[in-house]
């Protein structure tokens, strides 16, 4: 059973006190310029998911506490939470650097730019 810490209100609870929100950092392409979104981009947004064996970045909601969404970095093999961070933030730099596979590709230019979401 996972023990989760809310990044917003600091509450601690088991996984049933929280709601899992799936992969983090998915931007809706149609928000900026709906007319130019290709079918493949829309597929990526709706269905393609990073599915790493290891470090993953995801969303959680503090269901029975403050009700707010936040981000977490968690290992999908050891189940260990590496960090939690705000819903509009990027993960701590060290974790972005530790990311592998699709996440490493995703964080590459973010690392170059600095750490705003």
């Amino acid at each position: 059973m996972l023990i989760v810490h809310c990044h917003v209100c600091g509450a601690e609870g088991d996984e049933t006190d929280f709601h899992y929100g799936g992969q983090a950092h998915i931007a809706r392409p149609a928000t900026r310029d709906p007319a130019s979104v290709s079918d493949a981009e829309q597929r990526d947004y709706l269905f393609m998911r990073h599915n790493p064996k290891g470090l993953h970045f995801e969303r959680w909601r503090c269901d029975r506490g403050c009700g707010k969404w936040f981000h977490a970095a968690r290992d999908t093999v050891t189940m260990e939470f590496k960090a939690t961070y705000g819903i509009s933030e990027l993960p701590p730099r060290a974790l972005m650097e530790a990311a592998t596979g699709e996440w490493a590709i995703f964080f590459k230019d973010k690392l170059a730019k600095g750490s705003e979401a």
């Binding site: 059973m1 088991d14 049933t16 899992y20 995801e58 968690r74 189940m79």
Partner: peptide
């Protein structure tokens, strides 16, 4: 179980 997992072990809830 609701969250991504490669450990072949689920949790009690």
């Amino acid at each position: 179980d609701p969250y991504n997992n490669y450990s072949q072990r689920g949790s009690f809830p």
